[in-house]
């Protein structure tokens, strides 16, 4: 966010991946943050991660870049949150496109 004046109101479908320690009620804390920012949760998936004791939540939502940045920063403030990542599908695809990997479906 540094050095930019974010005034882009374009919304995109974002995927937010949250790695956390296990703690009762954390999911409610995250949904509270999405509610405060008036962000609908399009999908939500919770599972253990590959790291013992570390859980993973994957949330999809449609948002402006400004809103998703603010929401993710507030998620990261939660004590049990280890790390949070987010990306827009189309940005990820564009990056892969630029890298020359056009056929991302049939990678295998």
């Amino acid at each position: 966010m540094n050095g930019t004046r974010m005034e882009n109101n374009e919304t995109k479908l974002y995927t937010v991946i949250i790695y956390t320690q296990n703690q009762t009620g954390l999911l409610q804390q995250f949904t509270n943050i999405f509610t405060r920012h008036n962000l609908d949760i399009w999908s939500l998936f919770a599972s253990p991660s590959a790291i013992p004791g570390c859980h993973k939540l994957t949330i999809e939502t449609r948002a402006t870049e400004q809103k998703i940045v603010l929401a993710v920063k507030q998620i990261e403030k939660k004590i049990e949150v280890i790390r949070t990542f987010f990306y827009a599908d189309e940005d990820l695809l564009a990056e892969r496109d630029n890298a020359g990997k056009l056929d991302i479906v049939d990678q295998d």
Binding site: M1, N2, G3, T4, R5, M6, V69, L70, K73, Q74, E76, K77
Partner: peptide
């Protein structure tokens, strides 16, 4: 000290 405050209201050149 709270990174969520940086850029929350006022865009910054250096946070």
């Amino acid at each position: 000290i709270d990174t969520a405050e940086i850029g929350k209201i006022i865009p910054v050149n250096v946070g």
